[in-house]
């Protein structure tokens, strides 16, 4: 086991080097780092309270005191974008976490165990994925009610098939490998085999998929907010800011331009990182 971990450590280093070498991936990482800083230190960095209503100063364009302008209630857009990063990333990360855990578990079990378990789970996943993700998430949101927590669950559940499928595909390839047969003959039970041997080899696929899913989740959150089931007032994620700004598009375009740019930048960054990881880890996403 020790040797295996040493190997892993150096592999990590190798992958890191490969990742940074690609310029776009490096840019993506930088953006992500900035994002993390905003999320953690948002309280100090934002000039105003994002929810401070100041109606006399509503709908003002970008200026020195309000670099991104103000919205229809006089709230500072820059502060709202900074705080919005928090909510948007929270939704995205939690949703991806949910789908990652659930999807991976399903994919692992289904791919490794095979037989009728595989059949049932596969059919279930296929059924779920035969349905447009947005509508599925919308139905779940409608059931649970609007609000941030439920959007996370809705998007998380809707993305499960993506993870499950990919993990299952990888597990099918890995199953046949020598060290698995060794582990079986040594007498480890399937749970241990899955966690210790299969999972690490599948992890590269999961990581790539996770970063791409995170990007996609941000767009999904924007769509859900646009349809009215997203984060509730007066807090705002970037998606809800787009929804409100939509009404003011010709009068106060800065209300939608800046959150829109923020979304594009972060989604791009995550996509760059994901693509970079895919190249660096030399992953061919296998599907059956």
């Amino acid at each position: 086991m020790k040797r295996f971990e040493e190997l892993k450590a150096s592999n990590f280093y190798k992958v890191w080097r490969k990742l940074i070498r690609r310029r776009v991936a490096a840019i993506g990482l930088v953006v992500c780092a900035i994002l993390v800083i905003l999320v953690i230190f948002g309280d100090f960095l934002s000039p105003y309270d994002p929810q401070a209503i100041n109606t006399p100063e509503a709908l003002q364009g970008p200026s020195l005191s309000h670099p991104f302008g103000t919205d229809e209630m006089g709230r500072d857009v820059l502060s709202r974008v900074i705080y919005g990063a928090r909510l948007t990333m929270l939704v995205s990360v939690v949703a991806v976490a949910i789908s990652l855990v659930a999807g991976t578990a399903l994919g692992l079990v289904s791919g490794y165990v095979g037989g009728w378990v595989d059949l049932v789970i596969s059919k279930f996943i296929e059924a779920l994925s035969a349905f447009p993700m947005v509508m599925f998430a919308l139905t779940i949101s409608a059931i649970l009610g609007p609000g941030m927590r439920n959007v996370m669950i809705a998007i998380g559940v809707a993305y499960v098939p993506a993870f499950a499928r990919i993990v299952r595909g990888m597990v099918l390839t890995v199953r046949e490998r020598e060290y698995i047969e060794n582990a079986v003959s040594v007498g480890l039970n399937w749970f241990e085999i899955l966690i210790r041997y299969v999972l690490p080899n599948v992890s590269s696929v999961i990581i790539v998929q996770a970063s791409l899913a995170a990007a996609s989740a941000i767009l999904s959150e924007a769509t859900m907010s646009f349809l009215g089931v997203g984060v509730q007032a007066p807090e705002a994620s970037w998606g809800t800011m787009l929804k409100t700004g939509y009404n003011y598009l010709s009068m106060a375009p800065w209300m939608s331009v800046f959150p829109g740019i923020a979304i594009v930048v972060v989604v791009l960054a995550l996509n760059f990182v994901g693509d970079g990881l895919r190249d660096a880890l030399d992953v061919r996403l296998k599907m059956d």
Partner: peptide, 28 residues
């Protein structure tokens, strides 16, 4: 979640906060 109700509620929430009402908004 239609018309101007959301704006009205956001304002009420802010106003009533001064008066001791801690309002959470639920839209549907």
């Amino acid at each position: 979640t239609f018309g101007v109700l959301q704006q009205e509620c956001e304002l009420v929430q802010a106003q009533a906060a001064e008066a001791g009402f801690n309002i959470s908004l639920v839209g549907m």
